[in-house]
Amino acid sequence: MPYIMKYILLIFMSAVIIAAWIVEPPQSQLGSVSRIFYFHVPAALISVLAFGFALYNSIAYLKTNEIKYDFRSASSVELGLMFCILATVSGAVFAKAAWGAYWNWDPRQTSIFILILIYGAYLALRSALDNEERRASLSAVYAILAFVTVPFLVFIVPRIYPSLHPEDTIVGSGGEMQLTGMVAVIFWISMVCFAIMFYWLYSLQSRIELIVRKRLKEI
């Protein structure tokens, strides 16, 4: 992570936070409540990106048997869970304001909750395995299996069951981009900021895990 990226992140993240409050709300029907769009949607999409990183690192581990990929996979799952929980909580706040209840088992809420449970089980599996290599290969298999459910839960289930969740806000039903003007600019800057933040946390976390392992071996 280049040093200058942290300053870029600071400036642009602050700009997004300010702009989200002063520019017109992204959707006119919902009004100011829809401003959460700039933070809720990036958090959800970055969690999918994080689980994709876990998938990539798990495949890399099974191909090469290098332990660093296992630690990277574990770090991406932990961060993916964090972003997933952020998206769930911000979504619940939106639901309270827009639909009148924090939680009503809307297909969106159901599927993101299942996603949290699936990747929580990944952490449970890791702590149940003592041998390092066995833990690495078995949790890699589980992480790949878990990612198979992600397209279902994030993109398919909320679209085949009737849902209150605003759909077609980013990509329309015909596949065309729906965002226009300032909304698109703020949204994509916010996406990039979230992605940089994820990558920063991810590289830190993977390095910490490797250092901890080295220290444990020295003892």
């Binding site: 599927s111 299942i114 449970l117 699936i118 929580g120 089980a121 449970a124 599996l125 149940a128 395995l129 003592d130 066995r134 078995l138 589980y142 299996l145 878990a146 459910t149 279902f152 839960l153 289930v157």
Partner: peptide, 19 residues
């Protein structure tokens, strides 16, 4: 392949089975 087989099976399979 793990220790505590029975409990882990429920923990791992239920979330994946939920959909």
């Amino acid at each position: 392949k793990s220790s505590m087989k029975g409990a882990l099976f429920a923990v791992l399979s239920f979330p994946i089975l939920l959909p």
